[in-house]
Design a protein around this nucleic acid. Sequence first.
DNA 1: TCCCAGGCTGCTT
DNA 2: AAGCAGCATGGG
Length: 290
Amino acid sequence: MNIVHADFAVENYDLPATLGSGQAFGWRCGPQGWTGVVNGRWVRLRAGGGRIAAETAAPAADWQWLRHYLQLDVNLPEILAAFPSDDAALQAAVRACPGLRLLRQEPWECLACFICSSSKQIVQIQQITALLSRRFGEPLPVPPGEEPAYSFPGFARLADVSESDLRECKLGFRAPYLRGTAQKLAAGEGDLGRLAKLSLDEARAELLKLPGVGMKIADCVLLFGYGFPEAFPVDVWIMKALRRHYFPRRSVTPARLRRFIRSHFGPRAGYAQQYLFHYMRVIENARGTK
DNA sequence: TCCCAGGCTGCTT
DNA sequence: AAGCAGCATGGG
């Protein structure tokens, strides 16, 4: 089995923070780097010295799929410079983790994983999605001596899986949601590929038609899967941050909150969201419980 | 034992 | 329209 290497020069790219920041759930950190599956290929990544080194198990014609996934061509300093300068909380989050990036994941996998995510901790989402891959995905070529790896099962495959089989993957009450969404897509009711050509609001409206998909999950898919940079998923962590920093001692209606997000964070609000999320969840939390 | 987790749905007011 | 119980499962 051939092992194929590549090397990318990067600036302002914090690979561990990006792969571990709760936007993708398939990456595992080991002594030799971060191992995961991108578009049906086993990959290991290692960062250092202004470079990201990549290793795969099978030769590919080019590396565009990985550059696209890692969003290597995004001009991060330009995005960070456009954040509101008078926002102390956001600026602190940026200073704490200046190379945090957004990935561009495959939309179906992203959608399925976030349907599994509701009211779950990130570690558990990782476990659930790993079970789905192992059980219903296809085995992938890996270098000798490596753990087996599996593709993430497509919606056609999951549409044929019984609810109890999904529950055995620890999906709990999310099982009928994932099954329902997979069946709808398999039946041609909804075309994920078409969403990329729509506006943010139009694409969100399409996602909201799927079972188990509300505002939060829709915005995650729009941000992490389709690359709409203004999508701003509001989960419990972000809600905590927004209340604390922007609405102390005030109740906020969802409509007012959305208006605030749009006007305050601007057209790249999704990046601001990821910085606030990571700061709240990892950095502030670690400081508080140390 | 209790509270919470990258929520959504459907039923009550 | 807004509030809220219920939904599985596991971590701290």
